[in-house]
Simulated scan of single mutants.
Amino acid sequence: MNDEINYTNNPLHGLGLQELLTQIVDHYGFELLYAYLNINCFKTNPSIESSVKFLKKTEWAREKVEVFYLYKFKNLPRVSSEQFELPPRKRIVPEGQTPREPVELSFEDAERVREKQAQKAAEHGKTKRYGNGKSDGYSRR
């Protein structure tokens, strides 16, 4: 019961996907959304209706858009690692944290973000495939 009260402090509480998408598209446009989120529904013949349809069927993409809404459009401070594990709609925004002006975004910054993500993915792929990078998978006794 207490958690339900806290959820009302989340800007996503009671906000439909169509309204959320309309707000961020009106502010940033489809091109910039695609540059930051790399979701094809924002690139190929984008429309609010087709994007909503896709996002409703695709949980990972919807959560990516919701995170963008919270931390870029609403410009909320980043959450604790405990809250980060929760889906965006279940995160609790602490009392006193209120939405601010949307973050100013650029295509140049989007490119830097993508390069950083690609680098992290490459590093993650190495460590995932070979454990922590210190072991070849065989125990040495």
Results as ranks from 00 to 15, higher is better:
Pro99Leu: 03
Glu123Asn: 12
Trp60Met: 05
Gln97Phe: 09
Leu70Asp: 01
Ser47Ala: 04
Leu55Asn: 01
Ser139Phe: 12
Ile39Glu: 00
Arg140Ile: 05
Lys134Gly: 09
Gln83Leu: 07
Asp26Glu: 10
Lys116Gln: 10
Lys120Met: 10
Ile5Gly: 08
Lys57Asp: 09
Arg100Gly: 11
Cys41Lys: 05
Gln18Gly: 02
Ser81Leu: 08
Asp26Gly: 12
His124Lys: 09
Ser106Asn: 04
Lys43Asn: 15
Gly96His: 11
Leu12Arg: 00
Val52Pro: 01
Tyr69Thr: 02
Glu63Ser: 05
Ser47Asn: 03
Phe84Ser: 15
Phe68Pro: 09
Phe42Lys: 01
Gln117Asn: 14
Phe42Gln: 03
Asn132Ile: 02
Asp3Tyr: 14
Arg112Tyr: 15
Glu82Gly: 08
Ala118Gln: 15
Arg91Tyr: 07
Gly133Asn: 02
Tyr7Trp: 09
Gly137Ala: 08
Arg91Lys: 13
Pro88Ala: 07
Gly16Met: 02
Pro46Met: 06
Tyr7Thr: 01
Ser80Cys: 08
Val113Thr: 07
Ser51Asp: 02
Ser81Met: 05
Lys128Gly: 05
Tyr34Ser: 05
Lys74Pro: 01
Phe84Lys: 15
Ile48Ser: 01
Gly29Leu: 10
Lys120Arg: 14
Ile48Ala: 00
Lys57Gly: 06
Tyr130Arg: 13
Asn75Trp: 00
Glu4Val: 14
Ala121His: 10
Leu32Glu: 06
Gly29Tyr: 06
Leu12Tyr: 11
Gly29Val: 13
Leu105Arg: 09
Thr127Gly: 02
Tyr130Gly: 09
Lys134Phe: 13
Asn9Leu: 13
Pro94Ile: 11
Glu101Phe: 01
Lys72Gln: 14
Gly14Val: 08
Ala35Met: 06
Lys120Trp: 10
Trp60His: 08
Pro102Leu: 09
Trp60Pro: 00
Ser47Glu: 00
Ser106His: 04
Leu21Pro: 03
Val25Gly: 01
Glu63Asn: 14
Ser106Lys: 05
Ser139Thr: 12
Ser139Pro: 08
Leu12Ala: 07
Gln23Ala: 09
Tyr71Val: 14
Val79Gly: 00
Tyr36Lys: 07
Asn6Val: 04
Pro46His: 06
Ile48Gln: 03
His124Cys: 07
Arg89Cys: 03
Gln117Asp: 09
Tyr138Val: 12
Leu21Phe: 09
Asp136Gly: 13
Val93Tyr: 10
Thr127Ser: 14
Arg141Gln: 14
Ser47Val: 03
Glu19Trp: 00
Ser106Asp: 03
Gly131Val: 01
Asn132Phe: 15
Ile39His: 00
His13Gly: 00
Ala61Lys: 07
Lys126Asp: 07
Pro94Phe: 01
Glu19Ala: 05
Asp136Trp: 12
Asn40Ala: 10
Asn9Pro: 02
Arg129Met: 12
Pro87Cys: 05
Thr58Leu: 02
Leu86Cys: 03
Glu101Ser: 15
Gly96Glu: 12
Ile92Val: 15
Asn9Lys: 11
Gly131Asn: 10
Thr58Met: 01
Phe107Arg: 15
Ser106Pro: 04
Leu70Pro: 03
Glu95Arg: 15
Asp109Cys: 05
Pro94Leu: 04
Tyr71Thr: 13
Glu4Ala: 11
Ser50Phe: 06
Arg112Met: 14
Phe54Ser: 11
Glu66Lys: 08
Lys116Tyr: 12
Asn9Arg: 15
Phe73Gln: 02
Leu17Ser: 04
Glu85Phe: 11
